[in-house]
């Protein structure tokens, strides 16, 4: 289908972009890999589309005092090509390699994907596990929102109507931490039936840090707080299996044409166990 008619302009500055974000009937576009399909199906019918994809303020990956900072309009491709991210947060490339396909990664942006908040997208699990901090900006000012308070429902986030996601801060990993992303994909779409990101640090044979983010399982990607109970334990097979069961206990799982709730919960337990095991194996 062909999109409904709209006007198109390019933001010349961040101020232009923020103005667009606060204007009724206006949509911002960067890579467009979620928005253009929505326009095509006329699920989105904005009267104005403002392009922010080329703004240098929203691009790039840099080292900061607290961690690595990624501009919201940085493409998945640039995440894959970043030596800095490979060093500080290898889980980003590990996850990104499975997002969409090569062409989508060449154009799609990390900030666009997070703000779109598809409940089956991969990256939310990672930012939850890493305890990332998202910078939301509007003409009223700037605020920081932890990823763990960002996702509110399917395609719903903590962003106010006039806010733009501008930066993602990935705090440095705890000393000696290993990370891993494990997912089961729906074969045709590549979206996660279940995706799990894990961070595990081990010292002297005992876990000193454990964090798990889960996507695809419920209608909102979530941080599985129970993983912290691994701290002080030995990360052996039985303990990690029990931690995986605990991580999804009581979760109301999605049910659709691709997988029943029961099957998704099963996949989630397997994915959490594998992610924790791989992350623990990489720790130290």
């Amino acid at each position: 289908m062909i999109p409904a008619a709209f006007e198109y302009t390019r933001a010349r500055s961040l101020a232009d972009a923020l103005k667009a974000a606060g204007t009724r009937g206006t949509k911002v576009i960067a890579g467009g890999q979620s928005l253009v399909p929505l326009l095509r199906f006329r699920l989105a019918q904005p009267s104005v589309v403002v392009d922010i994809g080329h703004l240098p303020q929203l691009q790039g990956i840099k080292r900061a005092k607290q961690g690595t900072v990624i501009g919201a309009a940085t493409t998945y491709r640039d995440l894959l090509d970043s030596k800095l991210l490979h060093n500080t947060h290898p889980i980003i490339a590990e996850t990104t390699a499975g997002i969409g396909d090569r062409q989508v990664r060449n154009r799609g942006t990390i900030g666009g994907g997070l703000a779109h908040a598809d409940p089956a997208s991969d990256m939310p699990a990672v930012v939850l596990a890493l305890d990332a901090v998202l910078t939301l900006q509007s003409r009223r000012g700037k605020r920081s929102v932890p990823a763990r308070k960002f996702f509110k429902g399917p395609f719903a986030t903590a962003m106010k109507k006039d806010e733009l996601l501008t930066e993602i801060l990935l705090p440095f990993l705890p000393q000696g931490a290993g990370t891993a992303y494990e997912s089961f994909e729906q074969a045709a779409s590549g979206y996660a039936l279940v995706g799990v990101a894990a961070v595990v640090a081990v010292s002297g044979g005992a876990v000193t840090h454990a964090a798990v983010g889960i996507t695809g399982l419920a209608d909102t990607p979530f941080f599985a707080a129970s993983a912290a109970k691994l701290i002080g334990r030995t990360p052996n097979k039985e303990i990690l299996r029990a931690a995986a069961a605990a991580a999804v206990e009581g979760v109301s799982a999605n049910e659709d044409i691709h997988a029943s709730a029961e099957y998704r919960l099963h996949l989630a337990r397997v994915a959490v166990r594998k992610a924790l095991t791989t992350a623990a194996g990489r720790a130290g």
């Binding site: 198109y8 467009g32 253009v36 062409q103 989508v104």
Partner: peptide, 24 residues
């Protein structure tokens, strides 16, 4: 946006031209 038959290079990178606005 799945089949890739519309793939072209945009500044040397493969993209699906059904998922890019001409004005972009």
């Amino acid at each position: 946006s799945q089949c890739g038959a519309c793939t072209v290079l945009l500044d040397g990178r493969a993209v699906k031209s059904c998922s890019v606005l001409a004005v972009q």
